[in-house]
Structures are given as C-alpha cells and as structure tokens.
C-alpha cells in the first residue's frame, strides 16, 4: 500500500480549529508557558484591544480550553486566566500539525 505524505492543502485544512486563530493561538501559547496570567498582561503581550481579547477568551472558554477567575486587588478588578488540560492537549495537537505544515513548506525546518 502506498502511503504518500499528506498534501499541504489537506494539512492546512486540518489546522482549522478554534486554536488556529492567531490571537487564540497566542493566548494558549502564553498560558502554556505561564500557567496563570492577568488579562491585562495577555493584552499587553499580544498587543490587542480588550474587546478583541474578550471575544477570543470567551470562545476559548466555551471550548473548555481556558478558565477565568475574577477578583479584586486593591479595590481594582482583576481577571486571571488559566489554561485547562483540554487547552494544553489542543495546543499540543495543533503545534504538531503546524510543525508538519512548516516542514512541508520548507523541509529544512526542524
């Protein structure tokens, strides 16, 4: 049986998941490296507006990839964002696919 490597188009098709959107990918990657981050820190790090970030966080929360905790520090509201096990699994899966795509585009990528 001939197992030809998957085409670039099919790989790109496979990438289509809630993680694929760049801001969501950035959020999950940041939370993978830092298990908890403040909303404002994520906003600064990714350079996005709060409205835009809120929309993406809501989507990730719906998917069960992150959880949020609202609280107060010195009477000022603060939202902490955590990654869930589902979020880590989704990110690892996505990273593997992304690596395959990059290797297909440029085989010298390791």
């Amino acid at each position: 049986m001939n197992h030809s490597p998957p085409s670039l188009e099919s790989l790109l098709e496979d990438l289509s998941s809630p993680v694929h959107e760049p801001v969501r990918l950035g959020v999950l990657m940041l939370l993978h490296l830092n298990p908890v981050l403040a909303f404002s820190t994520i906003q600064k790090a990714l350079g996005v507006t709060s409205g835009n970030l809120n929309t993406h966080l809501a989507k990730l929360e719906d998917e069960g990839f992150i959880s949020k905790e609202k609280g107060f520090v010195d009477l000022r509201p603060r939202t902490l964002v955590f990654i869930t096990d589902n979020g880590r699994t989704a990110l690892v899966g996505y990273s593997g696919l992304l690596k395959q795509v990059l290797i297909t585009i440029n085989p010298s990528v390791t």
Partner: peptide, 20 residues
Amino acid sequence: SSIERLQPHIDILERVEKYQ
C-alpha cells in the same frame, strides 16, 4: 500563498517569544 496565510500566526508567536 501558504506562508502568507500563516504569517499572522508566525507574528503572534514571535510576540509570545518576545514577551517570554
């Protein structure tokens, strides 16, 4: 092109790396 489609993802990952 494929690489152009992935450019926003590469940009955001570079931001994450810089932040880290």
